[in-house]
């Protein structure tokens, strides 16, 4: 039933697809990190318009399925606005935007954990808003949330098969193509699972170690 020769035959192609999957994840995560920070800052803005807009975006994106969002970006946008983007771009924007709404919440928890006195000291020393964020608040808000961010990175990685639906040739679609060529189901799909596991599991161990290090007493 399990054909080793076939496994070695398809493995190089699957590993190539794995590279595509990893790079889509990393690019999507970069979008999510930047987008999440912008959303978190907008939610705290003193301008009501920005606050409401950010909350509306977060509510809208969280309450619609990721699959529908990437379909919209890839298939509907060209029709609606004459914007044609590649499957890869649609994939990382979709994935990134979707997770930015969750990361914004993670940022928020980190930012709110910075004591009010830190903002006040920054004001008393006449730091500008931008300097306060960059030099005082974020350096304290980010380290404690790195493990949580890492967990979201792993979750995103495991969500990439959704992008096969918009023809991005990542791991799952590659396996599907192999299956439709050879009608052998067992090896390709099993290998896909193993490859995901081979990346996710060590990554989750790394996150756990980070978490332990973060929990060391630091004190103020």
């Amino acid at each position: 039933m399990w054909d080793w020769q076939y496994v070695f035959e398809i493995l190089p192609e699957l590993v190539r697809a794995l590279k595509m999957t990893v790079s889509a994840t990393l690019c999507g995560f970069a979008v999510a990190c930047v987008g999440g920070l912008l959303l978190a800052a907008a939610v705290r803005s003193r301008y009501m318009f920005l606050r409401l807009a950010a909350k509306a975006v977060i509510g809208f994106i969280r309450n619609t399925p990721l699959l529908v969002q990437v379909f919209f970006l890839y298939y509907s946008l060209p029709v609606l606005a004459d914007i044609k983007i590649s499957a890869f771009a649609a994939g990382i924007i979709g994935l990134g935007l979707h997770y930015s709404t969750y990361l914004s919440e993670v940022y928020r928890s980190g930012i709110e954990a910075v004591p009010k006195g830190q903002w006040e000291a920054a004001t008393a020393l006449n730091f500008s808003k931008w300097r306060t964020w960059r030099n005082i608040v974020l350096p304290q808000a980010l380290p404690p949330i790195i493990p949580v961010m890492g967990n979201y990175l792993i979750v995103m990685f495991k969500e990439t098969p959704i992008l096969s639906a918009i023809t991005l040739v990542e791991l799952l679609l590659t396996a599907k193509n192999l299956v439709s060529d050879t009608y052998r189901v067992f090896e390709p799909y099993t290998l896909v699972g193993i490859l995901f596991l081979a990346i996710s599991y060590p990554a989750s161990l790394l996150v756990q170690r980070l978490e332990k290090r973060m929990n060391l007493p630091r004190g103020l």
Partner: peptide
């Protein structure tokens, strides 16, 4: 921002940057 340059403050809870 311009006016604040003339004032300084020391706080009860120090508020040093940890």
């Amino acid at each position: 921002h311009r006016m604040r340059g003339s004032v300084g403050m020391v706080f009860q809870h120090f508020n040093l940057f940890p």
